[in-house]
Every structure is written in structure tokens, then in C-alpha cells.
Design a protein around this nucleic acid. Structure first.
Lengths: 294, 294
DNA sequence: GGCCATGCTTCAATTTTTCTGAAGTTGCTT
DNA sequence: AAGCAACTTCAGAAAAATTGAAGCATGGCC
């Protein structure tokens, strides 16, 4: 018999638990049902997916299949959720995806503004990296996206939203912040510098070259904050992101790093509830999002 | 009952054909089976997916669901194919994804080299845009990727493969090619200039600004070739891409556009058949891919 | 209007698929 | 060697999918 999504799901659960009865439990089936499903799958592929007598050791093929199957199952579930959400939303549905830094800035007021004006409106907000924001738009999983940089996409309108200067982020008592003279790229890199994902948006040659020697890279924002709070480590971030750092951290422009990140608003052109999308985009653009006060 | 992948598939087929019996035909079922499946789906969602008596007009919700469902079905089928391919490949499997321009350059010799050395080896070659190359790597659907630019990815090693200077591509009898003095950006843009997807890789400010005024953009390579062959239109491409244009077209560097595109080789770190992947990457790197002769 | 064709739905019967509970292996532990 | 835990196998039961026949609208045509 052909492979089915439920077979993949069963396989993934067993691969994760390493144990049939626990997997059967989670799937709400009996052990024997799961056993037979797995057997069907192995028969279909003509190869074993597990090694040894027990189910706690994947074969090399199993490993590979697990990786593919898990992604597929997750995506399938997400699609179903999207479909069901779309069906439930009788009074309108807005699906907004944004990079985390702007999400924190924009989501609260958007949510308030739109729900107040449209009772019964469903809103779906999600934050991920630029990459996945663009994916979601391309795949029709979002109506509005906010991401760094300008990326032309079919059927999606892109407008610049705001710009955001990069600068030094460090503890308020760090020498590079307290001293009078503004810091330069070299000063920052020579301090205990932590690279982060947003640094990759900087095109400035001098910075790119200098930062490539950095030993530490942290992608998780929370860990990054923790590092900077120790007072020893410093990093480079756009100003609006720095806003969300705790009181004891400070932002300061870097003299020879005038680079800004350009944040774009993406708007799906042919969506159901196009009027809502339009209204929401207009509202987002009307917000003052610039990093610099005034 | 819950939504299943076969329901989505049935729905998509009906949405495409606009007609039950034709859809039933394609699905290898009877009309009534498809009708009932659709009914289940509508019952589950609590909304109609089609408007009117016939199945030839999607409702707004139907449109949205169609978009999501079709993507899902396609992806599911592709995953199954990947899984089955992985299972069949007893003697090894290499999955290579590349941007089209480099694919044409690299695939033939890679294929020859690897299959000669490894009888029974399965090789999967695919070409798409940079975006999807990276996706395939991230999702474990490819072992080796070739794409423009450096994009850090978890579990994937990236090494520069070669650089490729951008230049004017036009008919061999175009004034900008036949005249002695090399063309400048302004000359190119002021000719009948056709933008293309690869132009977006150029960071050069002067070019970016100038090209934004271009009226025509063509993404399909074949159409692009046709336009250039007319002798009237010109475009800008990396030199290795220009190699594959017909005899009657020529490549010429642009004086004030020294930009190159950097092509990177991406190698998945933990893959089954890691030794094969390693060997293949070594071979690709050993190829002479530079655009300039000598 | 009456007749017919088309496209779809509904229904009861049938086939296919999936699931279960019980019994049977296997290999490890004591 | 008895006990146990993890898994497989089996036959019957339950659930789901599919079918063919019958039925119901709609719209064209004489």
C-alpha cells in the first residue's frame, strides 16, 4: 500500500519515543496497530527503518526518512490549521507574519486597532526570521509580512516601512558607552564582541571583514541579552531592537558605521478580505516606527 | 471526520477541472466518491467551497483553501518521492540542487565523474532559484547545493566556489558591442534594457538606482534569450550565464560595473553517504568554473 | 410546455483499510 | 528456568471509502 500521512506520523512518533507502547499511547492507538503500520511502511520501502530488535535505534535510512517525514507532518498539520482557521473566520481573517524585533513594536497596536474596528475579526500573528516571513507570503500562508530588505515576490507588493540604524549595544557602564568619543568599528570588534543574526544584514565592507573574525555568534535573543547584561560583552543591533533590551543596556551609534537596515512591509495582492489587508497595511504605515525619537 | 491529504487532493482536482466527472476520471474514482469526499470536506469546515449548483466556481474561501491545499499536496508528493528514492538507493544517493546557470555548467561532468566511480549510485539533480536551493538544504531534501551569495545555514558548510563578473549581454551586431569604447552603466540602461532576476544580485548603488527605472523585467531565461536575439534589447548577466547564450549574442564587461556574483557551494554536514557527498564536493571544487578563459 | 442531456447528490450494499484483543515470539534479567 | 518487557502476528470487528443505481435540479431544444 502507498505511504500515507498517518504512517509518517506514526513512524515519527515511534522514532521520537524509541518505544512502541509510548508512541501508541500518544497516537491514541494500540501497540499492535502501530506495529502493523510500521511494518507496512518498511514493506513498502523494502528496507528496515530501525536497527536491532527494539525500536530505539534508527537505521541510516530511518534517520533520513525521519528528517523528511517530520517536516512533512508538521507542515501538513500547519496547513490544516490554516485551512480550518480560514473557514472559521466568517467576519474576516488577517494573517500577519513579521520578524521578531518589529513584531514586538507593531503587533500590540495593530491588534488593538483592527479588532476594535472589526468585531468578530480573527487575527493570526506570527514571528520568525526574514526567510520564513517571505516563505509564508509566497505560499499564501500570510496576508501581510514585515521583513528586512527588499525582496521582489510574485503577487506581493513591497513598500519601505522604516529604516533603523545599526549601533553598539552594551551595558550602561561599559567604557565604550561612558567615554566621550563615539566608538568606531575597530573599538567594537576589539571589545568582547558577540555576533548575531542581524549582523548579516550589514553590507559595510569594513564591518563585514572585521566581524568575520568574531569568535562568538548567538542567534537566540534572550541569550544575547544575558551576555550583554554581564557588562563584559557587547553586540551590534538596529536601534529599534535595542529598545527592547533591559534598562541596564544602552545603544550608541558607531562613528564609521552609518549602515541602516531597511524594513519593508509586504502586502499580498489577491487575498480574501482584501479590504481588511489594505486597511491594516495603511495603519501599520501610519505608525511611527523610527528608532530615533522626534 | 478529520481532513486527509486525499481529500485535499480531490478538492484540488475538482477546483482545477471545474467538473466532477473529469476530476473523478483523473483521480481514478467514480463521480459519486468524489462528490462525497467534497461533501465531507465542506461539512468539516462548515462552509461551502464552491458557489452555485455546479463545481465550476470556487467561493472566496474555496480560493484560499485551494491555494493552501495545492501547495500541500505537491509538497507531500515530493516528500514521498524523496523517501522512496532514499529507500531505493542502496549503493548511495546524491541529491544536488543548484541555480540553473551553474547547473548547466556543473551537472554533466559531476554526473559522469560520480557514476563512473560508483556503479549503482543514484543521483538526483534539480535546478531552481537560490531561494529554493537553500530551502532544500534546510529541509534535508538535498545534500549539496550551489547558489549565489553566502547564507549561513545550520548544519550546512558553505565554501566560495567561484566569482562571476556581470556584464552586458547583447546581439553581436549591437552598437554597444561593436564600438571600440567599453560601455558604461548609463549606456546600457539607456539602450533597450531588460531587467532579469539575476540583476537583483548586483549591489552597486549606481546600477541599482539606474536599473530601477527599467520598464521590462523578464524572469524566464528562454524569453530573455529571444529578446536579446532580436538585436534590439540588451540585458546584464554574469559571464558564465552568458556562455550559454546562442552564437549571435555576445558578452562585454561594463566599465563602471566591476561587480561579481559570488557563487557558493553548500554541503550538508550530517548526511547518509557522507563520504560520497564529500567526494562530490571535492570534485566540484576541482572543476574550473571561472568565466574568464585562462 | 414537454423531453432530454448534463452535472450533481443520495442511498444501500460492498470492498478496503484500519484497529483491537488475545496469543505468540524474542531476548534480556534475575 | 521463570519472569518480564518489547514487539509481532493473527483473526475478527469496526470504520471508512467506493461503487452502481436511483433521484433531483438546471438548462437547452423542439
Amino acid at each position: 500500500m502507498a505511504l500515507k500521512i498517518e504512517m509518517l506520523r506514526a513512524f515519527c512518533t515511534v522514532a521520537q519515543t524509541g518505544n512502541l507502547s509510548e508512541a501508541a499511547n500518544r497516537l491514541g492507538r494500540t501497540q499492535s496497530a502501530v506495529s502493523m503500520t510500521l511494518k507496512q511502511m518498511e514493506d513498502h520501502l523494502g528496507k528496515r527503518l530501525f536497527e536491532g530488535e527494539r525500536k530505539n535505534q534508527l537505521s541510516p535510512l530511518g534517520e533520513q526518512v525521519f528528517e523528511l517525514a517530520q517536516k512533512q507532518v508538521r507542515q501538513f498539520d500547519q496547513t490544516l490549521q490554516s485551512i480550518e482557521m480560514a473557514a472559521e473566520a466568517a467576519h474576516g481573517l488577517l494573517r500577519i507574519v513579521s520578524v521578531p524585533s518589529v513584531a514586538a513594536l507593531v503587533f500590540p497596536s495593530v491588534l488593538e486597532h483592527m479588532t476594535a474596528r472589526h468585531p468578530g475579526l480573527k487575527v493570526e500573528l506570527r514571528d520568525t526570521d526574514t526567510q520564513q516571513v517571505l516563505d509564508a507570503l509566497a505560499e499564501g500562508k500570510a496576508d501581510i509580512g514585515i521583513a528586512s530588505g527588499h525582496h521582489p515576490l510574485n503577487g506581493v507588493k513591497a513598500v519601505p516601512l522604516f529604516e533603523d540604524r545599526f549601533g553598539l549595544v552594551c551595558s550602561t557602564d561599559h567604557p565604550l558607552f561612558t567615554r566621550e568619543q563615539p566608538p568606531a568599528i575597530a573599538d567594537v570588534i576589539n571589545a568582547c564582541f558577540v555576533r548575531n543574526a542581524l549582523c548579516d544584514l550589514i553590507r559595510n565592507e569594513r564591518f563585514v571583514e572585521a566581524s568575520s573574525t568574531a569568535d562568538v555568534t548567538i542567534h537566540n535573543t534572550h541569550s544575547l541579552i544575558t551576555m550583554v547584561r554581564t557588562g563584559k560583552w557587547v553586540t551590534v543591533l538596529p536601534q529599534t531592537v535595542a529598545r527592547f533590551m533591559p534598562e541596564t543596556t544602552a545603544f550608541r551609534p558607531i562613528a564609521d558605521l552609518p549602515d541602516k537596515r531597511a524594513v519593508y512591509l509586504y502586502q499580498r495582492e489577491r487575498s480574501r478580505f482584501a479590504a481588511l489587508t489594505e486597511e491594516c497595511c495603511a495603519f501599520i504605515q501610519s505608525c511611527d516606527l523610527s528608532g530615533e525619537p522626534g
